[in-house]
Design a protein around this nucleic acid. Structure first.
Lengths: 355, 355
DNA sequence: CTTTAGCACTCCTCGCACCCGAGTGCTAAC
DNA sequence: GTTAGCACTCGGGTGCGAGGAGTGCTAAAG
């Protein structure tokens, strides 16, 4: 399940049992109440029978290694990005999800709705349950397979193309043509295309079309050529439909560290400027299992103080998209991770054709 | 153009020429730099050759009338909601739009895109140009007329219904049926419906269907009954499609008075919780011309420190939806109003069928 | 009667000094 | 290796005072 948590490998320095334990305690404490945690607190917190002074020595080592840092001379310590990484990768003990929560997720994602709706529901659910901002990419059509194509005449030079991708997903687009086509002609086109390509992957269909068109245009009769040309345009539109859904941004404002208005501003600008976040999400598509980006690791400074926890969701083993949450670095990973994981699996199940 | 600015009538007390002028100057000044403005400043600002003392007397009257208020004893004055209202209704001199801006709007809303896209572009444009949050309701279909209907079989019990509303707008939905239908049957249904209802308003079609079904069910043959039933379900879906698009929320954070994180929080929660804002927008639909809600006037306390400037956009005289911006009460009305007005008109033009 | 000047008063803002507490690092003793 | 003790640092809160902006009132001037 957490197969790829350790993506950002680094020479993990050998840490004593104790040091690890203290880092874990420190991080958990910091996640809990957001205050830099000092040696005295830590001594009390961790069940260890050690004096603050001893703790200080260990913590000093951790600081040396860049795992924790203090905001100013006489404050407690706070995990650094590396600290979080280590914490998440090796120290974290994820809680199993309560049944109640699982049931809620399954209930809400159980209804037969179209896939777009399901995906949006998933985003809202994530945001509700985690109190962070939930986000989900909309299924990419590249890997979906084409069930059939239909063309309807709209007006003189406009044709409505309908792409049936699955029982629950349909897409249409309007084509502006250079001449008028009769209903009969259009019927021929779609019959032809359906015979040739029904059931194939959209991406493959498109490639075939392009190459066939280029290579053997002269060998095709006029009708086929037109049909393919039209299909090509439809598929082109269909492919660039990748986008994402975001819910519950307001939750982000509950966190002190994001209360800085300029930080929030950058964040919301990033949301409006979808490209950047999409890029990030794209990176998560390949890997399976939960992925975590901590702070600057994302490579986008606008997400500096945020972490991203994502998991891909699939149909028939094909990754359709990614879902997850975005929140302050200091989020309750042990809780968020299983939630994201479960949601991804339940959404996958809901999207799988079963009737 | 500004036909309905004076919606919130109130017994406007007779104000001397001078008092009006000073209220205008004060409001403009306050809008410019957000600081309470004092008598000295006002004396300099307003070209009048009056001493601060005189100004103070006049301002004291304005305060008496509830048009301005001072945040604390020895600060300058700030317009109240009533003050803004008066300002907007009777004192404001709207700037004509520069040609460059008009051109930009027309250029961006000129492309042939489908209506949904146009509407989203309008929202982004508004937000870009005004540096406020732009928002636009998605065209309501109730008043749109139906060009035709098509049904396609998807699988055993699923049918794809396609609603052609105009050359540029198509909507589809998937119907789960209780038995299988052949392509031929579906063809019959759509032919029947198209003959009966093509060109009628969706709303009207639906009403007709419902009443005919109820009254004369026994007189209809089975085929027609089924066809009507199906159409009813499609139209029902089509009608509830009202929603809105929002762009540029990040802009809101540029304003000091909204930097209060809790205020922002309420605002963003309102955006997520679409209903409230939709209600507000609905109120704007009936009236023609630019509408302005100032602060608490909206009736939603979450918009307390915000104003809403909206204008409906139309096709063939039918109001399709509303567009506008939301921003702090202290916004540059004289600039925003013509922009919203122009955008509404340009969007209307772009949506009007012309080919 | 309107306008103005003068003046006392209020209240916000800012800088300053201050102290307190939390926490550290170091050293020396256990 | 662990602990106690101690000096030191720094941030945050508090209290005080000066400065400034602005008001309201009154009385005199136009």
């Amino acid at each position: 399940m957490l197969s790829s948590l350790c993506k950002h490998e680094m020479p993990v320095p050998e840490l004593s049992e104790r040091a690890q334990y203290l880092l874990k305690a420190l991080t958990e404490r910091y996640i809990r109440d957001g205050q830099p945690v000092g040696s005295r607190t830590l001594a009390r917190e961790a069940g260890l029978k050690l004096s603050p002074a001893t703790i200080r020595n260990v913590i000093a080592d951790l600081e040396e290694l860049g795992l924790v840092t203090s905001p100013h001379t006489s404050a407690g310590r706070v995990p650094t990005v590396q600290g979080y990484r280590l914490f998440v990768d090796t120290l974290l003990s994820v809680q199993p999800l309560e049944h109640a929560l699982l049931d809620e997720l399954e209930l809400n994602l159980g209804a037969e709705a179209d896939s777009r709706e399901l995906v949006e529901t998933a985003s809202s659910l994530l945001s509700d349950v985690t109190r962070l901002a939930g986000l989900v990419t909309i299924p990419r059509r590249e890997h979906a397979s084409l069930q059939r194509v239909e063309f309807l005449p709209l007006s003189e030079h406009k044709i409505l193309a309908i792409l049936v991708i699955s029982d629950t997903e349909v897409q249409n687009c309007i084509l502006n043509m250079d001449r008028a086509y009769s209903a009969a002609e259009l019927q021929q086109f779609s019959t032809f295309l359906n015979e040739q390509f029904a059931g194939k992957e959209i991406h493959a269909v498109r490639n075939t079309l392009v190459s066939e068109l280029r290579e053997t245009r002269e060998n095709l009769n006029r009708m086929m050529a037109t049909a393919m040309d039209m299909a090509d345009r439809v598929l082109g539109e269909a492919e660039q439909g990748s986008d994402y859904v975001l819910a519950g941004q307001a939750n982000l404002m509950e966190f002190n560290e994001l209360c800085n208005v300029t930080t929030l501003r950058h964040l919301f600008e990033a949301f409006n400027e979808k490209r950047q976040i999409l890029n990030l999400l794209d990176q998560c598509v390949e890997s399976e299992g939960v992925q975590i980006f901590i702070g600057e690791e994302s490579g986008y400074q606008m997400l500096d103080e945020c972490s991203l926890v994502t998991a891909p969701y699939t149909v028939d083993g094909q990754v359709l998209g990614v879902l997850g949450v975005i929140g302050p670095t200091r989020m309750a990973y042990e809780r968020v991770i299983p939630i994201v994981d479960a949601t991804a699996r339940i959404l996958s199940a809901a999207l799988n054709p079963h009737d």
